[in-house]
Amino acid sequence: MVQRTTEIVVGFFMIAGLAALLFLALQVSGLSPKSAAATYTVYANFNDVGGLTPRGKVSMAGVTVGSIESISLDKNTFQAKVTMAIRSDVDTIPADSAAVIRTSGLLGEQYIDISIGGDMESLGEGDTFYSTQSAMNLERLISNFASGR
């Protein structure tokens, strides 16, 4: 009988652990089954990615539509090549849209904002953004301003 009670209590303990893990997954880290939805990959080349990091968000008009998968250096052009995963249901991004690196708030993290173009064609799997705008570098801005150039 004692053994039985112990078993039940330990069972509840394990359930509590599982519930805690679920809470951490769903409520705290915002992991939802939806985020496993299909994506397609697009690329963008920047002269300077600044503080952009993998896992950063990609948004359009402030709505998150995908995330940054990886950032690497193109050895030929010496540009940064950013690989992005965009949600499949957002499949009507005009082909001449620009990828712009922005900062959320004054000190917040950097993300890619897609400023929409007017082309009838849409970006598809493996396409590259035609135009990009690199990260605003505060120090360079100030030094340019101070040297009067």
């Binding site: 893990l21 951490l24 997954a25 705290v28 880290s29 915002g30 968000k57």
Partner: peptide
């Protein structure tokens, strides 16, 4: 409170 938390906590990297 929750929104900020969810956008910054990653399941694999943090949890």
């Amino acid at each position: 409170f929750w929104g900020n938390m969810q956008s910054s906590v990653d399941f694999v990297d943090d949890v």
